[in-house]
Amino acid sequence: MTAAAAPSRFRRPRRDRGGDDTGVSARRWFTPWLLIAPGGLWLLIFFIIPLFSLGRLSLENGGLSNYSTVISDNSTVIIRTFVYATVSTIAAIIIGYPLAYVIATKGGKYKNLLLALVVLPFFVTYLVRTLSWKILLFDGGPVVSILHSLGILGENQGILGSPFAVVAALTYNFLPFMVLPIYVSLEKLDRRLLDAAADLYSSPARAFRKITLPLSLPGLFAGTLLTFIPAAGDFVNSELLGSERTVMIGNIIEKNFGKEFFRPELSALSFMLMAIILIGVIIYARLLGTEEIA
């Protein structure tokens, strides 16, 4: 039998099939491809091909000079975009890692409830969530009042329109994407390793540094990507909570995507955004040494 090489599990008893055993085994190698084909073609036509179409369009009416034009015209915006994305990602780690740690190691029977609270924001649509941040940060709203009474903000100062408002909302909107992967990697961690460390007179801090942290790096890696990437491409938070001072790359694309004339330059801008992120991901993967992910 050649069947051993083809691992299809859908095997009819020979007696039903009569003599067409060859037909069955010939069909086996492409059974997985039949399953993949519909979704795969969808991704090929509407994801892969558009990326090529974007790349081609970015070189129209001027070739590579489109890129230098776009970069020199928008250098402040480009730098600002990556600064905002970096700061909000770091903030998400600072808030998200301890939260994931507490849920995974101390959640006990409330683990699932706490996790449900973490994903609760996803039950309210993105735009409405961001509008609720606008309510929270509005002049006279709770956050501004507290900061006034603490004397951190001056009498007539507000938060809306500032980089702080945009970065805070970016952090908020993508925080669950940071917490969940870290939670998953901490949850899988073998607690006996920590017991062993304690038995060998390691301090809890040292055990954390030598065991917990390294073993949670894959989760931290995934969380960082899932937070940084959408933050770098966002335009909603800047538009709803920011001002002209907080324009990001996404806002430039959003303002002009309907205008035929700008498309080559906008394509260059989006292609560049994608390229910078991909390069960043590769470097980051190398730094963390999580090669199997990259």
């Binding site: 795969g40 991704l43 509407f46 994801f47 892969i48 091909i49 558009p50 990326l51 179409s53 974007l54 369009l57 990507l225 899932l226 990437i229 959408p230 770098a232 491409g233 966002d234 335009f235 790359i249 996404g250 694309i253 959003e254 995507f257 498309r263 906008l266 394509s267 989006s270 292609f271 955004l273 994608m274 992120i277 991909l278 991901v281």
Partner: peptide, 20 residues
């Protein structure tokens, strides 16, 4: 290929599809 769309900003995915 399945992971790739998740590593791209939505604005790039959306805009490239629009160009198509």
């Amino acid at each position: 290929i399945l992971i790739l769309p998740l590593t791209m900003p939505e604005v790039v995915l959306g805009f490239s599809l629009l160009t198509l």
